[in-house]
Design a protein around this nucleic acid. Structure first.
Length: 472
RNA sequence: GCUCCCUUCGUCUAGUGGCCUAGGACGCUGGCCUCUCACGCCGGUAACAGGGGUUCGAAUCCCCUAGGGAGCGCCA
């Protein structure tokens, strides 16, 4: 059997992290079996669908690297096809016109609820309407089987049985002739020869209806796999108040796509004790049927840890590429300063995100805007001034500017000034970075460069904290 | 309300009747390393939702209860 999976978002917002995981699972399944991954945009809700959302979804997929083999297909372009199938069903007696008013339906629903029953259509028009009310545009309903049961053999949930009596005759075409969701899905899955439907478990309840329609159309149904939802860190439904939910927001906060993907694949799925998975390993080891059936809460700390892991271990050139985007966002031109690769190598294990790494690296390219007050109070003591001065002078006389030389000079200066290495290092650090935190001081000096370092060392000596008290 | 789904450390999970005084990871935490911040290394913390069965033996199988979620649209 040829494997064909599809990811079918509706363009009513950005690509969120739950959707991204579903897309990943679909993609992995297709790749694993040498199959085809299809992108289908379910935009039949014309009111809420937007072109911006389509772009946002496409952008998110691209950033994650989940390339699709076919599509994107747009359901709004397939209306003639849906109509064709619907008319066929009408002719075959698999569907019928329903003239019931929304008011009647509303009342029916209320009565059923009052009787503590599951609200559903009572089938009044099912047997045919001899005298259709004039001026009423009918909807089209599917004739759902009335007895027996329908079984969903779900790859993740196992066998789930639904009684047909629980299902009603759902509307497949609105009064204006446009098709509804459950119907378009059925026609598309059929036409696109989807072999595996991997989707959120909020669709599990739709599956028996779709199965019944597929059966009515006489086609072999796809295999279903309903993946559980992703919850917010507090275990409640994921929403904007939980912070990042859009995939692009993760990019802007400085996550690497491979870190997000690795995080997502481990949510509800595992392979023994393994935590780190390359894309190739995921493709090799992932199997939908191993996906957990329970919902999983997102854990921002673990994502951060994974991101740092990839920051520490990926190819520096790859990191540099992503880092330059974030430096750019801070108004820094990475070509005007030290080699980005050098920066990556020294910063990669001191940042959890690219955004943080960029933030920590601007001083390599630009003078600090003032000094951190706490750092000044703690480390810029008057006693340090002579040593700072002396260090500047030694540097001036030294032509080499490599970390080892700089380190030796620093050590020498501290020793002859009767200072601890760390005390002097912190003062120098404040001078060039503006704060008490930076990569090793010798490397930092090296990357800031000779000319700018000398100037900044000179400038820090003007700081009031280093000036001797005024005497009369 | 009805139908369906779910339930192992705070979180992600291992576990498919004996290897479980329940393993790993994140987090938190004690220590080591150290020019700052980090990295790294060593150690600690913490769970089978509850109750009944089945069995020589149950986290694992069955039933019930509780809790959580989803669906019940001329939304997708």
């Amino acid at each position: 059997m040829t494997v064909r999976t599809r990811f079918a978002p509706s363009p009513t917002g950005y690509l969120h992290i739950g959707g991204a995981r579903t897309a990943l699972f679909c993609w992995l399944h297709a790749r694993k079996h040498g199959g085809t991954f299809i992108l289908r945009i379910e935009d039949t809700d014309i009111e809420r669908s937007t072109a911006e959302s389509v772009n946002a979804i496409l952008e998110g997929m691209t950033w994650l690297g989940l390339e699709y083999d076919e599509g994107p297909f747009f359901q709004t372009r397939r209306f003639p096809r849906y109509r064709e199938v619907m008319e066929q069903m009408l002719r075959d007696g698999r569907a019928y016109y329903c003239y019931c008013s929304k008011e009647r339906l509303e009342q029916l629903r209320n009565e059923q609820m009052a009787r503590k029953e599951k609200p559903r259509y009572d089938g009044r028009c099912r047997a045919g309407v001899p005298n259709p009310p004039a001026g009423v545009k009918p909807v089209v309903r599917f004739k759902n089987p009335q007895g027996g049961s329908i079984v969903v053999e779900d790859l993740i949930r196992g066998r789930v049985v639904f009684q047909n009596a629980e299902l009603d005759d759902l509307i497949i075409a609105r009064a204006d002739g446009t098709p509804t969701y459950n119907f378009t899905v059925v026609v598309d899955d059929m036409d696109m020869k989807i072999s595996h439907v991997i989707r959120g478990d909020d669709h599990l309840n739709n599956t028996p209806r779709q199965l019944n329609m597929l059966q009515a159309l006489g086609v072999e149904p796809p295999v279903y796999a309903h993946v559980p939802m992703i919850l917010g860190p507090d275990g409640s439904r994921l929403s904007k108040r939980h912070g990042a939910v859009s995939v692009m927001q993760y990019r802007d906060e400085g996550y690497l796509p491979e870190a997000l993907l690795n995080y997502l694949v481990r949510l509800g799925w595992s392979h023994g004790d393994q935590e780190i998975f390359s894309l190739d390993e995921m493709i090799e080891l992932f199997d939908v049927k191993d996906v957990h059936s329970s919902a999983a809460a997102i854990n921002p700390d673990k994502l951060l840890w994974l991101n740092q892991h990839y920051l520490k271990t990926s190819d520096p050139a790859h990191i540099a590429h992503h880092l330059s985007y974030h430096l750019g966002r801070l108004g820094v031109d990475p070509s005007k300063g030290p080699d980005l690769l050098e920066v990556v190598k020294v910063q990669r294990e001191r940042a959890k995100t690219l955004a943080e790494m960029a933030q920590n690296s601007v001083f390599f390219y630009r003078d600090p805007q003032g000094y951190d007050e706490k750092a000044v109070a703690k480390y810029l003591k008057k006693e340090i001034a002579p040593a700072l001065q002396a260090f500047g002078e030694r540097l001036m006389q030294c032509s080499a500017w490599d970390p080892a030389t700089l380190h030796a000079l620093l050590e020498e200066t501290a020793k002859s000034g009767g200072l601890e290495f760390g005390k002097l290092a912190q003062a120098v650090r404040i001078a060039i970075a503006g704060r008490a935190v930076s990569p090793p001081i010798d490397v930092s000096l090296h990357l800031v460069g000779r000319e700018r370092s000398l100037r900044l060392l000179h400038e820090v000596l003007e700081h009031p904290a280093l000036k001797p008290p005024h005497h009369a």
